[in-house]
Design a binder for these strands. Sequence first.
DNA 1: TGGAGTTGCGCC
DNA 2: AGGGCGCAACTCCA
Length: 547
Amino acid sequence: MTRVRLSRLPGERVRVSEEGATHEVAVADLPSYVSEREPETPRWVWDDTARWYPPLLAAGVRVARCHDLRLCRRLLARAPAVDPSLLAGDEAGLWDRLRPAAAAVTEPVLFSGDDALDHLRADVEDVRQLAAIDASPDAARLRLLVAAESAGALAAAEMTHAGVPWRVDVHEALLTEKLGPRPPRGARPRLLAECADDVRRVLDAPGLNPDSRPDLLAALRRAGVDVSDTRASSLRAVDHAVVEPLLRYKSLAHLFSTNGWAWIDEWVRDGRFRAVYQPAGSATGRWSSNGGGALSFPAQVRSAAVADEGWVLVVADVAQLEPRVLAGMSGDRALAGAARGADLYQGMVDAGAVATRQDAKLGLLGAMYGATSGESGRMVAGLTRRYPQAFGLVEEAARAGERGQVVRTLLGRGSPTLGGSWDESPDAPPADLHDLDRRRRSFGRFTRNFVVQGTGAEWALCWVADLRNRLWRLGARGALDDRPHLVLFLHDEVVVHAPAGLADAVAAELAEAATTAGRLLFRELPVDFPLTVSVVRSYAEAGKPGT
DNA sequence: TGGAGTTGCGCC
DNA sequence: AGGGCGCAACTCCA
């Protein structure tokens, strides 16, 4: 196992020793120290991984373990099984005020400018958090959760540092083919402009700007197209000559504005797309991204993600992550049985629970999202009898939410509370009862999904945390820059950039890490988490089976 | 003019 | 009257 030893030196420098190599890194007197509470596995404790780790990575230092005080404080403060009074004390209010450090893609940022926040006592806060965890009835699970949350933060910074290998020439060729040559600033590219002309011609609306929703809707109606909005799905439902060019226009306009030349200018440097992640950026614990749209970059440009010469991309995704997680956390052995194999939905068909794969998918997604009507709603009713524990768990989460209660993930992350006034003081302004009921149900759908989405995010965190260590060990004989490394993480999918000779070994580690994650979370009930793995030169070549 | 809110897209 | 997120552009209003 990789060992990182750290020691503070005078002159605001830190010495980092790792596998025989020693680095000195300049830092200021900031909230950070090395905890040797578990002497075999020293842990760098700091206020914010996004503040500390980028400059360390830039100095060539890889950190094996950390405890991210900001992320974990937030997590513990919202965890139902943690006594909030144990998080109170010196500087507690300041810790609560911390916001994620600004993305440090080019210049490392060690100072926020707010002196009080820049010099907090990391050791004091660390002790407080550990005590809060120790006192919790859910201590074991919370320990796993804070370790995974912190490891995820390390992985996020490492992925930003490494970047996705990006071929600007491939991307630009694709743009030119679909849109025409790069236009001057403010103008539409040629093929997009021609597409807009097609729309104007068919609608007989010469001055129309197809980007203006109200104008477009009015023009559509004048031409006899009966739609209530301009959404693609609404347009597809009508039969009119404008539909084809308009859908084509929307698709091209989206490519141009979201992943066009401007996106390249802003996000690709030195042949790398450096996505910026926010671990636990969403309420469920899923990551979000505030740079380059890393978690939503469209299939349209994935062909530009190309491995370096002699390297490959190993792409792995989990089929039906959330249904599998639901089976594990509810202890539903029938659903876990259907999950034994590559296709959970097909497993449900084979077990005779449902007629078709599509019905299985509709029913499960409907249960997790709270569908009440249509095909999906009907399937939920039937499947509830077959899988009472799994479907009962999300149903109970929904009812708890409707009562205004907090729900939690398997490892103990708590949902936000329902803001607003519906359950507050009786002398609040009398709100519309119908509106209150609508909000109550809406919150119930949120808590229903929260338990599954949030536990799915926990599985993924454990997967990534274990994987980054495995990849590090795998490349231990190579130089720092020759090691296989994570470059992208998309909720239930990862991309590893690896020397071609290590592709098979990486694929094996991906699967091992998935198995480990499943055992960590669902010790008592083993659930399969089969991966679809592709070894490719370009991300666009990766197999994308339906989920 | 600039910020907040809305719409619609696309990723999971 | 199906969950989460980011982003870009338009719209509205101070």
